Structure formats: structure tokens, C-alpha cells
Amino acid sequence: MAKNKTEETERSVEDFILAVEDERQRDDSFALARLMEEVSGHPPRMWGPTIIGFGRYHYRYASGHEGDAPLLGFSPRKAAISVYAFTGLPEHEHLLEGLGRFKMGKACIYVKKMSDIDAGRLTRLCRQTIAFLQETYGDRQKE
């Protein structure tokens, strides 16, 4: 069985964000971290070298592949912030309505700046994503 590439690390979230070159993106990252911590009830942790994750769930696919992943997360990248707070399922697309300006990725949404996003809608999206993950994979969160 292949080892997961993205696992939780002991690296400092604050040091990682402070190393982000763009000041607006740095400020947006701190704001997004506060929002996701409040919504999830979990402190931020580094997952791999560049993803800031909140909480954890254990997944197991029909193929037998399994592992742990954060309930919510984001990664400040040069072009945009990758936000991992959307299931990608068609039945959840209505949660993106009114969210603001973003681009869709395969497993995330890309946000240029947080001022383009409605914080209330993002909070709702995060809550629904957590509910879906808990319903699908069980409430097997661990700190």
C-alpha cells in the first residue's frame, strides 16, 4: 500500500505563514486560519510542507487505500490560496453560490484574496464540509 504524501507534521504554522512573501497573502492566511479554527474547533497544524489543516478524519476507499486527512485546510501558493473546504460533489455546488470570486480546482477552490470571499458563506461551506466528512467517514476525529 502506498504511503500518503501529506501527513501531519510538527512544523510551526505561524513560522510557515510568516515566511509567505506577499503581505496581503500573509494577512489573509492568518485570517483564514482564525476562521477555520473557529469553525472546526481544532487548532491549525501543518500537513506536509505547505498545507495548514484543521482537525482530522480517517478515510478508507473501496480500493482499500486509507489514511488521515484534515477536515479543512488551505495552502498559500504564489498565484492564489488553495482552500480545501469543498467536497467537489455536485450536490454541494449550491454551497458555492454567493461565495465570491474564486476558481475551481479538482479538490479545492482558489482564492486570490480573502476580501473577494463572503466570510459567512465560507463559514457555511466549511461547516457543511465537516458534516459531510463526519457522516461519510464517521466521527473519528483525533487531535
Score class of each variant (00 low, 15 high):
residue 3 K to Y: 07
residue 30 F to P: 04
residue 137 Y to K: 04
residue 70 P to N: 04
residue 93 E to D: 08
residue 139 D to M: 06
residue 4 N to W: 15
residue 53 G to C: 01
residue 39 V to T: 06
residue 99 L to H: 06
residue 5 K to P: 08
residue 41 G to C: 03
residue 57 Y to F: 11
residue 5 K to H: 12
residue 53 G to L: 01
residue 107 A to V: 13
residue 4 N to H: 11
residue 28 D to Y: 02
residue 11 R to G: 06
residue 69 A to Y: 01
residue 74 F to Q: 01
residue 23 E to H: 09
residue 99 L to Y: 06
residue 102 F to S: 09
residue 24 R to I: 09
residue 111 V to S: 04
residue 101 R to S: 12
residue 106 K to M: 10
residue 25 Q to D: 00
residue 41 G to M: 02
residue 85 A to E: 03
residue 67 G to H: 01
residue 1 M to C: 10
residue 137 Y to M: 03
residue 2 A to I: 14
residue 117 I to R: 08
residue 69 A to S: 12
residue 72 L to I: 05
residue 127 R to V: 15
residue 141 Q to R: 09
residue 11 R to N: 06
residue 55 G to P: 01
residue 11 R to W: 12
residue 129 T to H: 14
residue 8 E to W: 14
residue 83 V to M: 03
residue 107 A to K: 12
residue 124 R to P: 15
residue 140 R to I: 15
residue 51 I to F: 00
residue 44 P to E: 01
residue 15 D to A: 06
residue 91 E to F: 06
residue 57 Y to H: 09
residue 79 A to D: 08
residue 54 F to H: 00
residue 137 Y to V: 03
residue 54 F to G: 00
residue 92 H to V: 09
residue 112 K to I: 13
residue 133 L to H: 02
residue 25 Q to K: 05
residue 138 G to Q: 04
residue 63 S to M: 01
residue 26 R to M: 00
residue 110 Y to A: 10
residue 101 R to G: 13
residue 31 A to S: 14
residue 130 I to N: 00
residue 124 R to I: 15
residue 69 A to V: 10
residue 127 R to T: 10
residue 10 E to W: 07
residue 105 G to Y: 05
residue 9 T to D: 06
residue 142 K to E: 08
residue 98 G to N: 12
residue 119 A to Q: 14
residue 7 E to H: 07
residue 63 S to I: 02
residue 68 D to H: 08
residue 69 A to D: 03
residue 4 N to V: 15
residue 79 A to K: 07
residue 88 G to W: 09
residue 25 Q to E: 06
residue 67 G to R: 00
residue 64 G to S: 01
residue 84 Y to W: 03
residue 45 R to G: 02
residue 14 E to Y: 10
residue 50 T to D: 05
residue 92 H to R: 05
residue 128 Q to R: 14
residue 97 E to C: 09
residue 113 K to R: 11
residue 80 A to R: 10
residue 68 D to T: 13
residue 109 I to H: 05
residue 85 A to V: 05
residue 21 E to N: 08
residue 137 Y to C: 07
residue 98 G to Y: 11
residue 38 E to T: 15
residue 44 P to W: 00
residue 74 F to I: 03
residue 60 R to M: 11
residue 83 V to A: 05
residue 125 L to M: 15
residue 65 H to K: 10
residue 7 E to R: 07
residue 108 C to M: 11
residue 127 R to P: 07
residue 8 E to F: 14
residue 118 D to C: 11
residue 87 T to K: 05
residue 6 T to F: 09
residue 85 A to L: 06
residue 56 R to D: 12
residue 126 C to P: 04
residue 125 L to Y: 07
residue 125 L to N: 05
residue 103 K to L: 06
residue 78 K to W: 03
residue 72 L to A: 00
